[in-house]
Design a protein around this nucleic acid. Structure first.
Length: 501
RNA sequence: CGGGCUGUGGCUCAGCUUGGUAGAGCGCUGCGUUCGGGACGCAGAGGCCGUGGGUUCAAAUCCCACCAGCCCGACCA
Protein backbone atom coordinates (compact mmCIF):
# COMPACT_ATOMS: atom_id res chain seq x y z
CA UNK A 1 0.00 0.00 0.00
CA UNK A 2 1.80 3.13 -1.14
CA UNK A 3 -0.20 5.43 1.13
CA UNK A 4 -0.46 3.09 4.08
CA UNK A 5 1.22 5.20 6.72
CA UNK A 6 0.50 8.58 5.23
CA UNK A 7 -2.00 10.87 6.84
CA UNK A 8 -4.96 11.89 4.71
CA UNK A 9 -4.27 15.55 5.35
CA UNK A 10 -0.99 17.26 4.52
CA UNK A 11 0.42 19.17 6.21
CA UNK A 12 -0.31 17.78 9.66
CA UNK A 13 -1.50 19.97 12.51
CA UNK A 14 2.00 19.99 13.96
CA UNK A 15 3.61 21.06 10.69
CA UNK A 16 1.33 23.94 9.79
CA UNK A 17 -1.86 24.42 11.71
CA UNK A 18 -3.46 27.19 9.61
CA UNK A 19 -2.82 25.30 6.39
CA UNK A 20 -4.11 22.08 7.93
CA UNK A 21 -7.31 23.94 8.80
CA UNK A 22 -7.77 25.15 5.22
CA UNK A 23 -7.25 21.64 3.93
CA UNK A 24 -9.85 20.15 6.24
CA UNK A 25 -12.44 22.71 5.24
CA UNK A 26 -11.81 21.90 1.60
CA UNK A 27 -11.44 18.12 1.60
CA UNK A 28 -14.27 17.56 4.07
CA UNK A 29 -16.40 19.58 1.63
CA UNK A 30 -17.50 22.07 4.25
CA UNK A 31 -17.04 25.27 2.27
CA UNK A 32 -15.03 27.07 -0.37
CA UNK A 33 -14.19 30.69 -1.04
CA UNK A 34 -16.11 32.33 -3.86
CA UNK A 35 -15.65 35.46 -5.96
CA UNK A 36 -15.73 38.14 -3.30
CA UNK A 37 -13.00 38.46 -0.71
CA UNK A 38 -14.04 36.82 2.52
CA UNK A 39 -17.21 35.26 1.15
CA UNK A 40 -17.80 31.54 0.99
CA UNK A 41 -20.09 28.89 -0.39
CA UNK A 42 -21.14 26.62 2.45
CA UNK A 43 -21.45 23.16 0.93
CA UNK A 44 -24.13 20.63 1.95
CA UNK A 45 -21.96 18.79 4.46
CA UNK A 46 -20.92 22.03 6.16
CA UNK A 47 -24.40 23.47 5.99
CA UNK A 48 -25.80 20.24 7.45
CA UNK A 49 -23.64 20.85 10.53
CA UNK A 50 -24.86 24.44 10.76
CA UNK A 51 -28.48 23.33 10.36
CA UNK A 52 -28.06 20.94 13.26
CA UNK A 53 -26.58 23.72 15.35
CA UNK A 54 -29.48 25.96 14.43
CA UNK A 55 -32.11 23.38 15.18
CA UNK A 56 -30.69 22.45 18.55
CA UNK A 57 -29.97 26.00 19.69
CA UNK A 58 -33.36 27.10 18.49
CA UNK A 59 -35.05 24.49 20.67
CA UNK A 60 -33.06 25.77 23.63
CA UNK A 61 -34.08 29.36 22.89
CA UNK A 62 -37.73 28.34 22.74
CA UNK A 63 -37.40 26.44 25.98
CA UNK A 64 -36.17 29.62 27.65
CA UNK A 65 -39.16 31.58 26.38
CA UNK A 66 -37.76 33.20 23.25
CA UNK A 67 -39.48 33.45 19.89
CA UNK A 68 -38.03 34.07 16.44
CA UNK A 69 -38.69 37.10 14.27
CA UNK A 70 -36.99 38.74 11.32
CA UNK A 71 -35.70 42.29 10.97
CA UNK A 72 -34.46 44.04 7.80
CA UNK A 73 -31.02 43.65 6.30
CA UNK A 74 -30.66 47.38 5.60
CA UNK A 75 -30.14 49.85 8.40
CA UNK A 76 -30.51 53.58 7.72
CA UNK A 77 -27.23 55.31 8.48
CA UNK A 78 -28.98 57.63 10.94
CA UNK A 79 -29.94 54.63 13.10
CA UNK A 80 -26.34 53.53 13.38
CA UNK A 81 -25.31 56.93 14.62
CA UNK A 82 -27.54 56.89 17.65
CA UNK A 83 -25.24 54.95 19.94
CA UNK A 84 -21.82 56.62 19.91
CA UNK A 85 -19.61 53.73 21.03
CA UNK A 86 -21.52 51.32 18.89
CA UNK A 87 -21.06 53.24 15.67
CA UNK A 88 -17.42 53.81 16.47
CA UNK A 89 -16.89 50.11 17.01
CA UNK A 90 -18.42 49.08 13.71
CA UNK A 91 -17.78 52.05 11.42
CA UNK A 92 -14.57 50.58 9.97
CA UNK A 93 -16.21 47.42 8.73
CA UNK A 94 -19.56 48.50 7.32
CA UNK A 95 -20.75 47.74 3.81
CA UNK A 96 -22.80 50.67 2.60
CA UNK A 97 -25.46 50.76 -0.11
CA UNK A 98 -25.60 54.09 -1.87
CA UNK A 99 -27.45 53.45 -5.14
CA UNK A 100 -30.55 51.63 -6.23
CA UNK A 101 -30.02 51.27 -9.97
CA UNK A 102 -27.38 50.40 -12.53
CA UNK A 103 -26.97 51.94 -15.91
CA UNK A 104 -24.76 51.45 -18.93
CA UNK A 105 -21.82 53.85 -18.82
CA UNK A 106 -20.11 55.43 -21.79
CA UNK A 107 -17.42 52.73 -21.66
CA UNK A 108 -20.04 50.00 -22.14
CA UNK A 109 -19.81 48.80 -18.57
CA UNK A 110 -22.54 48.76 -15.97
CA UNK A 111 -22.17 51.27 -13.14
CA UNK A 112 -24.35 52.67 -10.36
CA UNK A 113 -26.57 55.33 -11.88
CA UNK A 114 -25.58 58.75 -10.52
CA UNK A 115 -29.22 59.80 -10.70
CA UNK A 116 -30.17 56.86 -8.50
CA UNK A 117 -28.11 57.78 -5.48
CA UNK A 118 -29.99 57.20 -2.23
CA UNK A 119 -30.76 60.26 -0.16
CA UNK A 120 -29.66 58.34 2.92
CA UNK A 121 -27.06 55.57 2.61
CA UNK A 122 -28.07 52.17 3.94
CA UNK A 123 -25.74 50.09 6.05
CA UNK A 124 -25.91 46.35 5.62
CA UNK A 125 -26.38 45.11 9.18
CA UNK A 126 -23.15 44.23 10.96
CA UNK A 127 -25.49 43.41 13.88
CA UNK A 128 -29.04 44.56 14.50
CA UNK A 129 -29.11 46.37 17.84
CA UNK A 130 -30.07 49.67 16.29
CA UNK A 131 -32.86 48.60 13.98
CA UNK A 132 -34.30 46.23 16.54
CA UNK A 133 -34.04 48.96 19.16
CA UNK A 134 -36.01 51.33 16.95
CA UNK A 135 -38.67 48.66 16.57
CA UNK A 136 -38.82 47.86 20.26
CA UNK A 137 -39.24 51.55 21.00
CA UNK A 138 -42.59 51.36 19.26
CA UNK A 139 -43.63 48.07 20.84
CA UNK A 140 -42.77 48.86 24.42
CA UNK A 141 -45.04 51.31 26.24
CA UNK A 142 -45.72 49.73 29.59
CA UNK A 143 -44.11 47.34 32.04
CA UNK A 144 -46.86 45.00 30.88
CA UNK A 145 -45.12 44.76 27.48
CA UNK A 146 -42.00 43.37 29.12
CA UNK A 147 -39.97 41.32 28.84
CA UNK A 148 -39.48 41.24 25.07
CA UNK A 149 -37.65 37.99 24.26
CA UNK A 150 -36.85 37.74 20.56
CA UNK A 151 -34.22 36.00 18.50
CA UNK A 152 -33.43 36.21 14.82
CA UNK A 153 -31.49 33.90 12.52
CA UNK A 154 -29.88 35.85 9.73
CA UNK A 155 -26.78 36.85 7.84
CA UNK A 156 -24.67 39.85 8.75
CA UNK A 157 -21.79 41.60 7.00
CA UNK A 158 -18.60 42.87 8.57
CA UNK A 159 -15.94 43.98 6.13
CA UNK A 160 -13.10 42.06 7.72
CA UNK A 161 -9.54 42.76 6.71
CA UNK A 162 -8.32 39.22 7.09
CA UNK A 163 -10.95 36.61 6.39
CA UNK A 164 -10.62 32.90 7.11
CA UNK A 165 -13.24 30.36 6.17
CA UNK A 166 -15.89 30.08 8.92
CA UNK A 167 -13.67 31.74 11.51
CA UNK A 168 -13.93 35.23 10.12
CA UNK A 169 -15.84 35.79 6.90
CA UNK A 170 -17.17 39.01 5.46
CA UNK A 171 -20.69 37.66 5.40
CA UNK A 172 -21.62 35.16 8.06
CA UNK A 173 -24.68 33.43 9.43
CA UNK A 174 -25.67 33.72 13.04
CA UNK A 175 -28.43 34.18 15.52
CA UNK A 176 -28.84 37.32 17.53
CA UNK A 177 -31.11 37.44 20.54
CA UNK A 178 -32.39 40.83 21.66
CA UNK A 179 -34.32 41.27 24.86
CA UNK A 180 -35.77 44.11 26.91
CA UNK A 181 -36.43 43.88 30.63
CA UNK A 182 -38.10 45.85 33.33
CA UNK A 183 -35.21 45.78 35.78
CA UNK A 184 -31.45 45.72 35.67
CA UNK A 185 -31.35 42.52 37.71
CA UNK A 186 -33.63 40.75 35.27
CA UNK A 187 -31.53 41.81 32.29
CA UNK A 188 -28.32 40.73 33.98
CA UNK A 189 -29.93 37.41 34.76
CA UNK A 190 -30.94 37.00 31.11
CA UNK A 191 -27.38 37.79 29.99
CA UNK A 192 -26.09 35.09 32.26
CA UNK A 193 -28.85 32.61 31.39
CA UNK A 194 -28.06 32.77 27.68
CA UNK A 195 -24.36 32.37 28.31
CA UNK A 196 -25.24 29.21 30.21
CA UNK A 197 -27.35 28.04 27.28
CA UNK A 198 -24.33 28.52 25.03
CA UNK A 199 -22.01 26.74 27.39
CA UNK A 200 -24.38 23.79 27.71
CA UNK A 201 -24.88 23.58 23.97
CA UNK A 202 -21.20 23.71 23.15
CA UNK A 203 -20.30 21.21 25.86
CA UNK A 204 -23.10 18.68 25.34
CA UNK A 205 -23.59 18.84 21.59
CA UNK A 206 -20.25 19.95 20.19
CA UNK A 207 -18.19 18.19 22.89
CA UNK A 208 -16.12 21.33 23.41
CA UNK A 209 -15.16 22.37 26.94
CA UNK A 210 -15.12 26.13 27.53
CA UNK A 211 -14.29 28.75 30.07
CA UNK A 212 -17.08 31.22 30.76
CA UNK A 213 -16.19 34.67 31.83
CA UNK A 214 -16.40 38.39 31.51
CA UNK A 215 -14.51 40.32 28.86
CA UNK A 216 -12.11 43.08 29.81
CA UNK A 217 -13.05 46.63 28.95
CA UNK A 218 -10.99 46.66 25.77
CA UNK A 219 -12.62 43.51 24.41
CA UNK A 220 -16.15 44.53 25.30
CA UNK A 221 -18.86 44.79 22.65
CA UNK A 222 -19.18 48.42 21.48
CA UNK A 223 -21.94 50.00 23.51
CA UNK A 224 -22.28 47.22 26.09
CA UNK A 225 -21.98 47.60 29.85
CA UNK A 226 -20.80 44.03 30.26
CA UNK A 227 -19.78 41.34 27.78
CA UNK A 228 -19.70 37.69 28.77
CA UNK A 229 -18.15 35.06 26.56
CA UNK A 230 -17.36 31.39 26.34
CA UNK A 231 -13.80 30.68 25.30
CA UNK A 232 -12.67 27.38 23.77
CA UNK A 233 -9.12 26.16 23.25
CA UNK A 234 -8.36 24.72 19.85
CA UNK A 235 -5.49 22.45 18.92
CA UNK A 236 -2.88 25.14 18.32
CA UNK A 237 -3.58 26.03 21.96
CA UNK A 238 -5.11 29.33 21.04
CA UNK A 239 -8.38 30.63 22.38
CA UNK A 240 -11.43 31.16 20.28
CA UNK A 241 -14.49 33.05 21.34
CA UNK A 242 -17.37 30.67 20.75
CA UNK A 243 -20.31 32.75 21.91
CA UNK A 244 -21.07 36.07 23.57
CA UNK A 245 -23.81 37.52 25.69
CA UNK A 246 -24.03 41.25 26.40
CA UNK A 247 -25.68 43.24 29.12
CA UNK A 248 -26.39 46.54 27.40
CA UNK A 249 -27.70 48.43 30.39
CA UNK A 250 -29.84 51.33 29.24
CA UNK A 251 -27.38 52.51 26.59
CA UNK A 252 -29.32 51.27 23.63
CA UNK A 253 -32.74 52.02 25.05
CA UNK A 254 -31.63 55.60 25.58
CA UNK A 255 -30.31 55.74 22.05
CA UNK A 256 -33.43 54.17 20.54
CA UNK A 257 -36.01 55.54 22.96
CA UNK A 258 -37.19 52.25 24.45
CA UNK A 259 -39.21 53.69 27.32
CA UNK A 260 -41.99 52.26 29.39
CA UNK A 261 -44.31 53.31 32.14
CA UNK A 262 -43.37 51.60 35.37
CA UNK A 263 -45.69 50.04 37.91
CA UNK A 264 -45.73 53.30 39.81
CA UNK A 265 -46.43 55.42 36.78
CA UNK A 266 -42.98 56.78 35.96
CA UNK A 267 -41.18 56.69 32.62
CA UNK A 268 -38.09 54.49 32.57
CA UNK A 269 -35.70 53.22 29.92
CA UNK A 270 -35.74 49.48 29.34
CA UNK A 271 -32.78 47.26 30.25
CA UNK A 272 -31.60 45.37 27.20
CA UNK A 273 -29.41 42.40 26.34
CA UNK A 274 -28.12 40.80 23.17
CA UNK A 275 -26.40 37.48 22.54
CA UNK A 276 -25.08 35.63 19.53
CA UNK A 277 -23.48 32.55 18.06
CA UNK A 278 -22.27 32.27 14.50
CA UNK A 279 -20.96 29.99 11.78
CA UNK A 280 -17.58 30.49 13.46
CA UNK A 281 -18.70 27.56 15.59
CA UNK A 282 -18.23 25.28 12.60
CA UNK A 283 -14.60 26.38 12.42
CA UNK A 284 -14.21 25.93 16.16
CA UNK A 285 -15.55 22.42 15.83
CA UNK A 286 -13.03 21.61 13.08
CA UNK A 287 -10.09 22.97 15.07
CA UNK A 288 -11.14 21.25 18.29
CA UNK A 289 -11.74 17.71 17.08
CA UNK A 290 -10.13 17.35 13.65
CA UNK A 291 -7.08 15.11 13.27
CA UNK A 292 -4.44 14.49 10.60
CA UNK A 293 -6.86 12.31 8.62
CA UNK A 294 -9.59 14.91 8.44
CA UNK A 295 -12.62 16.17 10.26
CA UNK A 296 -13.93 14.36 13.33
CA UNK A 297 -17.56 15.11 14.11
CA UNK A 298 -19.21 14.66 17.48
CA UNK A 299 -22.23 12.44 16.75
CA UNK A 300 -24.68 14.93 18.26
CA UNK A 301 -23.90 17.45 15.53
CA UNK A 302 -23.03 15.17 12.58
CA UNK A 303 -25.42 15.41 9.61
CA UNK A 304 -25.03 11.65 9.16
CA UNK A 305 -24.27 9.29 12.03
CA UNK A 306 -23.64 6.07 10.16
CA UNK A 307 -22.49 5.52 6.62
CA UNK A 308 -22.90 2.05 5.20
CA UNK A 309 -20.38 1.06 2.58
CA UNK A 310 -21.37 -1.95 0.50
CA UNK A 311 -18.42 -4.12 -0.49
CA UNK A 312 -19.32 -5.77 -3.76
CA UNK A 313 -16.36 -7.65 -5.17
CA UNK A 314 -18.44 -10.05 -7.22
CA UNK A 315 -21.29 -9.18 -9.49
CA UNK A 316 -23.35 -12.20 -8.45
CA UNK A 317 -23.44 -11.22 -4.77
CA UNK A 318 -23.97 -7.53 -5.39
CA UNK A 319 -27.75 -7.46 -5.20
CA UNK A 320 -27.78 -9.47 -2.00
CA UNK A 321 -25.25 -7.18 -0.35
CA UNK A 322 -27.20 -4.08 -1.32
CA UNK A 323 -30.38 -5.61 0.00
CA UNK A 324 -28.66 -6.30 3.28
CA UNK A 325 -27.43 -2.70 3.43
CA UNK A 326 -30.92 -1.36 2.82
CA UNK A 327 -32.30 -3.60 5.51
CA UNK A 328 -29.66 -2.57 8.03
CA UNK A 329 -30.24 1.10 7.23
CA UNK A 330 -33.96 0.71 7.87
CA UNK A 331 -33.32 -1.05 11.18
CA UNK A 332 -30.87 1.63 12.28
CA UNK A 333 -33.22 4.45 11.31
CA UNK A 334 -35.86 3.04 13.63
CA UNK A 335 -33.44 3.64 16.47
CA UNK A 336 -33.10 7.08 17.99
CA UNK A 337 -30.09 9.14 18.90
CA UNK A 338 -30.09 12.55 20.53
CA UNK A 339 -33.32 14.27 19.65
CA UNK A 340 -34.09 12.38 16.45
CA UNK A 341 -33.63 9.18 14.51
CA UNK A 342 -30.21 7.74 13.72
CA UNK A 343 -29.19 9.32 10.40
CA UNK A 344 -27.93 6.69 7.99
CA UNK A 345 -26.54 6.96 4.51
CA UNK A 346 -25.69 4.13 2.12
CA UNK A 347 -22.79 4.98 -0.16
CA UNK A 348 -23.67 3.17 -3.35
CA UNK A 349 -21.39 5.09 -5.62
CA UNK A 350 -19.47 2.99 -8.09
CA UNK A 351 -16.07 3.50 -6.51
CA UNK A 352 -13.52 1.34 -4.78
CA UNK A 353 -14.26 0.57 -1.13
CA UNK A 354 -11.04 2.13 0.08
CA UNK A 355 -11.68 5.38 -1.76
CA UNK A 356 -15.14 5.65 -0.28
CA UNK A 357 -13.91 4.89 3.22
CA UNK A 358 -11.28 7.59 3.04
CA UNK A 359 -13.78 10.16 1.84
CA UNK A 360 -15.96 9.51 4.87
CA UNK A 361 -12.97 9.54 7.18
CA UNK A 362 -12.09 12.97 5.87
CA UNK A 363 -15.66 14.14 6.35
CA UNK A 364 -15.62 12.92 9.92
CA UNK A 365 -18.71 10.71 9.92
CA UNK A 366 -18.82 9.01 13.36
CA UNK A 367 -19.43 5.41 12.24
CA UNK A 368 -18.55 3.55 9.07
CA UNK A 369 -20.05 0.14 8.45
CA UNK A 370 -18.78 -2.24 5.79
CA UNK A 371 -20.94 -5.04 4.51
CA UNK A 372 -19.61 -7.60 2.07
CA UNK A 373 -20.56 -11.06 0.88
CA UNK A 374 -18.73 -12.78 3.70
CA UNK A 375 -20.71 -10.77 6.26
CA UNK A 376 -23.90 -11.86 4.55
CA UNK A 377 -23.12 -15.45 5.33
CA UNK A 378 -21.90 -14.86 8.86
CA UNK A 379 -24.54 -12.26 9.77
CA UNK A 380 -21.87 -9.82 10.86
CA UNK A 381 -20.82 -6.26 10.06
CA UNK A 382 -17.47 -4.52 10.34
CA UNK A 383 -17.70 -1.19 12.16
CA UNK A 384 -15.11 1.59 12.37
CA UNK A 385 -15.32 4.50 14.77
CA UNK A 386 -13.95 7.87 13.70
CA UNK A 387 -12.55 8.47 17.16
CA UNK A 388 -10.36 5.37 16.81
CA UNK A 389 -7.40 4.77 14.46
CA UNK A 390 -8.63 4.57 10.88
CA UNK A 391 -7.70 0.95 10.39
CA UNK A 392 -9.40 -0.27 13.56
CA UNK A 393 -12.49 -2.33 12.92
CA UNK A 394 -14.82 -4.09 15.26
CA UNK A 395 -16.95 -6.95 14.04
CA UNK A 396 -20.50 -7.08 15.35
CA UNK A 397 -23.38 -9.48 14.87
CA UNK A 398 -25.79 -7.40 12.78
CA UNK A 399 -28.59 -7.45 15.37
CA UNK A 400 -26.20 -6.61 18.15
CA UNK A 401 -24.91 -3.62 16.26
CA UNK A 402 -28.39 -2.26 15.67
CA UNK A 403 -29.16 -2.56 19.36
CA UNK A 404 -25.94 -0.90 20.39
CA UNK A 405 -25.60 1.80 17.71
CA UNK A 406 -26.86 4.70 19.79
CA UNK A 407 -24.78 3.53 22.73
CA UNK A 408 -21.67 3.51 20.55
CA UNK A 409 -22.49 7.00 19.32
CA UNK A 410 -22.79 8.13 22.92
CA UNK A 411 -19.45 6.64 23.66
CA UNK A 412 -17.84 8.51 20.76
CA UNK A 413 -19.44 11.73 21.95
CA UNK A 414 -18.11 11.19 25.48
CA UNK A 415 -14.68 10.24 24.26
CA UNK A 416 -14.34 13.34 22.08
CA UNK A 417 -15.33 15.58 24.96
CA UNK A 418 -12.89 13.92 27.32
CA UNK A 419 -10.12 14.12 24.78
CA UNK A 420 -10.76 17.85 24.24
CA UNK A 421 -11.02 18.43 27.97
CA UNK A 422 -7.75 16.67 28.61
CA UNK A 423 -6.02 18.66 25.88
CA UNK A 424 -7.26 21.89 27.36
CA UNK A 425 -6.34 20.98 30.90
CA UNK A 426 -2.80 19.91 30.01
CA UNK A 427 -2.35 23.26 28.32
CA UNK A 428 -3.87 25.38 31.04
CA UNK A 429 -1.67 26.54 33.87
CA UNK A 430 -2.02 28.50 37.00
CA UNK A 431 0.67 31.14 36.87
CA UNK A 432 1.92 33.13 39.83
CA UNK A 433 4.79 35.25 38.61
CA UNK A 434 5.50 37.58 35.78
CA UNK A 435 8.60 35.56 34.76
CA UNK A 436 6.60 32.37 34.57
CA UNK A 437 3.98 34.15 32.54
CA UNK A 438 6.46 35.46 29.99
CA UNK A 439 8.20 32.10 29.83
CA UNK A 440 4.92 30.29 29.19
CA UNK A 441 4.04 32.49 26.24
CA UNK A 442 7.46 32.64 24.57
CA UNK A 443 8.22 30.03 21.90
CA UNK A 444 11.46 28.05 22.30
CA UNK A 445 12.30 28.40 18.64
CA UNK A 446 12.04 32.04 17.77
CA UNK A 447 12.66 31.79 14.04
CA UNK A 448 10.02 29.13 13.45
CA UNK A 449 7.74 29.22 16.48
CA UNK A 450 6.36 25.87 17.53
CA UNK A 451 2.87 25.49 18.91
CA UNK A 452 3.27 26.85 22.41
CA UNK A 453 1.53 28.49 25.30
CA UNK A 454 -2.07 27.81 26.14
CA UNK A 455 -4.35 29.26 28.78
CA UNK A 456 -2.89 30.93 31.79
CA UNK A 457 -4.94 31.41 34.90
CA UNK A 458 -3.46 34.37 36.66
CA UNK A 459 -4.36 37.27 38.86
CA UNK A 460 -4.51 40.67 37.25
CA UNK A 461 -5.17 44.06 38.75
CA UNK A 462 -7.65 44.94 36.04
CA UNK A 463 -5.65 47.77 34.53
CA UNK A 464 -5.71 48.58 30.87
CA UNK A 465 -1.98 49.36 30.89
CA UNK A 466 -0.99 45.81 31.84
CA UNK A 467 -3.37 44.38 29.30
CA UNK A 468 -1.85 46.50 26.54
CA UNK A 469 1.64 45.66 27.67
CA UNK A 470 1.33 41.88 27.51
CA UNK A 471 -0.49 42.17 24.23
CA UNK A 472 2.37 44.20 22.79
CA UNK A 473 5.07 41.98 24.29
CA UNK A 474 3.66 38.52 23.82
CA UNK A 475 0.56 38.89 21.64
CA UNK A 476 -1.36 37.46 24.54
CA UNK A 477 -4.86 38.73 25.22
CA UNK A 478 -6.95 38.57 28.32
CA UNK A 479 -9.70 36.27 27.12
CA UNK A 480 -12.00 36.55 30.06
CA UNK A 481 -12.21 36.90 33.78
CA UNK A 482 -13.72 33.58 34.80
CA UNK A 483 -17.10 33.71 36.42
CA UNK A 484 -17.24 32.49 39.97
CA UNK A 485 -17.66 28.77 40.15
CA UNK A 486 -19.64 27.81 43.23
CA UNK A 487 -17.78 24.51 43.43
CA UNK A 488 -14.36 26.18 43.44
CA UNK A 489 -14.65 29.61 44.99
CA UNK A 490 -11.69 31.71 43.94
CA UNK A 491 -9.46 33.13 46.60
CA UNK A 492 -8.29 36.69 46.51
CA UNK A 493 -4.80 36.95 45.06
CA UNK A 494 -2.22 39.47 44.05
CA UNK A 495 -1.69 40.76 40.56
CA UNK A 496 1.29 38.89 39.14
CA UNK A 497 2.51 41.98 37.33
CA UNK A 498 2.29 44.69 39.95
CA UNK A 499 1.81 42.89 43.24
CA UNK A 500 -1.41 44.75 43.82
CA UNK A 501 -4.32 42.81 45.27
C1' C B 1 -5.67 48.89 6.12
C1' G B 2 0.19 48.13 6.25
C1' G B 3 4.26 44.28 5.12
C1' G B 4 5.54 39.61 2.64
C1' C B 5 4.52 35.45 -0.64
C1' U B 6 1.39 33.57 -4.58
C1' G B 7 -2.17 33.21 -8.96
C1' U B 8 -0.79 28.15 -15.39
C1' G B 9 -6.86 22.16 -16.77
C1' G B 10 -10.98 20.03 -10.89
C1' C B 11 -6.22 19.63 -7.31
C1' U B 12 -0.66 20.14 -6.59
C1' C B 13 2.79 22.34 -9.41
C1' A B 14 6.89 22.83 -13.68
C1' G B 15 7.68 26.40 -17.61
C1' C B 16 9.05 32.81 -16.62
C1' U B 17 15.77 34.47 -15.31
C1' U B 18 17.50 34.33 -21.42
C1' G B 19 9.79 36.45 -25.02
C1' G B 20 8.77 32.32 -30.44
C1' U B 21 1.34 29.73 -30.22
C1' A B 22 1.26 25.13 -23.12
C1' G B 23 3.52 20.52 -19.85
C1' A B 24 3.68 16.68 -15.63
C1' G B 25 1.47 13.99 -11.57
C1' C B 26 -3.09 13.27 -9.28
C1' G B 27 -8.31 13.62 -10.40
C1' C B 28 -12.13 13.09 -14.45
C1' U B 29 -14.53 9.99 -18.94
C1' G B 30 -14.59 5.09 -21.67
C1' C B 31 -13.11 -0.12 -22.03
C1' G B 32 -10.77 -4.27 -19.66
C1' U B 33 -8.53 -6.62 -15.36
C1' U B 34 -9.55 -5.60 -10.17
C1' C B 35 -12.26 -4.76 -5.47
C1' G B 36 -12.60 -6.89 2.73
C1' G B 37 -8.57 -0.13 3.64
C1' G B 38 -6.24 5.42 -0.82
C1' A B 39 -5.73 -0.77 -7.36
C1' C B 40 -3.63 -1.53 -12.53
C1' G B 41 -3.35 -1.35 -18.04
C1' C B 42 -4.87 0.96 -22.51
C1' A B 43 -7.49 4.94 -24.88
C1' G B 44 -9.52 9.93 -24.21
C1' A B 45 -11.59 14.78 -22.62
C1' G B 46 -10.31 19.12 -20.41
C1' G B 47 -6.43 25.44 -20.39
C1' C B 48 -9.30 33.74 -22.88
C1' C B 49 -1.69 30.85 -18.38
C1' G B 50 -6.34 35.75 -12.35
C1' U B 51 -8.30 40.58 -15.03
C1' G B 52 -7.22 45.00 -17.77
C1' G B 53 -3.66 48.01 -20.04
C1' G B 54 1.46 48.74 -21.95
C1' U B 55 6.31 47.30 -24.50
C1' U B 56 7.25 44.06 -28.87
C1' C B 57 6.94 41.46 -35.44
C1' A B 58 5.66 38.11 -31.28
C1' A B 59 3.96 37.96 -24.06
C1' A B 60 2.29 32.51 -19.44
C1' U B 61 7.27 34.82 -19.73
C1' C B 62 9.09 41.90 -19.50
C1' C B 63 6.48 46.69 -17.31
C1' C B 64 2.08 49.10 -14.81
C1' A B 65 -2.60 48.88 -12.47
C1' C B 66 -6.44 46.17 -10.45
C1' C B 67 -8.73 41.58 -8.43
C1' A B 68 -8.32 37.18 -5.57
C1' G B 69 -5.79 33.68 -2.12
C1' C B 70 -2.33 32.58 1.95
C1' C B 71 1.02 34.21 6.06
C1' C B 72 2.45 38.25 9.67
C1' G B 73 0.57 42.85 12.03
C1' A B 74 -3.61 46.22 13.65
C1' C B 75 -9.30 44.81 13.98
C1' C B 76 -12.99 41.24 14.94
C1' A B 77 -18.46 36.54 16.21
Amino acid sequence: MPHAEKTAITPTREQDFPEWYQQIVRVAELAEPRDVRGCMVIRPWGFGIWENMQRQLDAMFRATGHRNAYFPLFIPLSHMQKEAEHVEGFAKECAVVTHHRLELGADGKMRPAPAAELSEPLVIRPTSETIIGATYAKWVQSYRDLPVLINQWCNVVRWEMRPRLFLRTTEFLWQEGHTVHETEAEAREETRRMLDVYETFVRDRLAIPVFSGEKSESERFPGAVQTLSIEAMVQDRKAIQAGTSHFLGQNFSRASGIQFQTRDGKQEFGWTTSWGMSTRLVGTLVMTHGDDDGLVLPPRIAPTHVVIIPITPKEESRAAVLEMCTKLAAQLRRGSYGDGPIEVEIDQRDLGGGVKSWEWIKKGVPLRVEIGPRDLESGKVAVSRRDQPVKAKEVFATEGFVDRASEILNSIQRNLFQRAMQFRDTNTRVIDTREEFYDFFTPKNASKPEIHGGFALAYWNGSRAIEDEIKADLKVTIRCIPLADPAHPSEPGKCIFTGEP
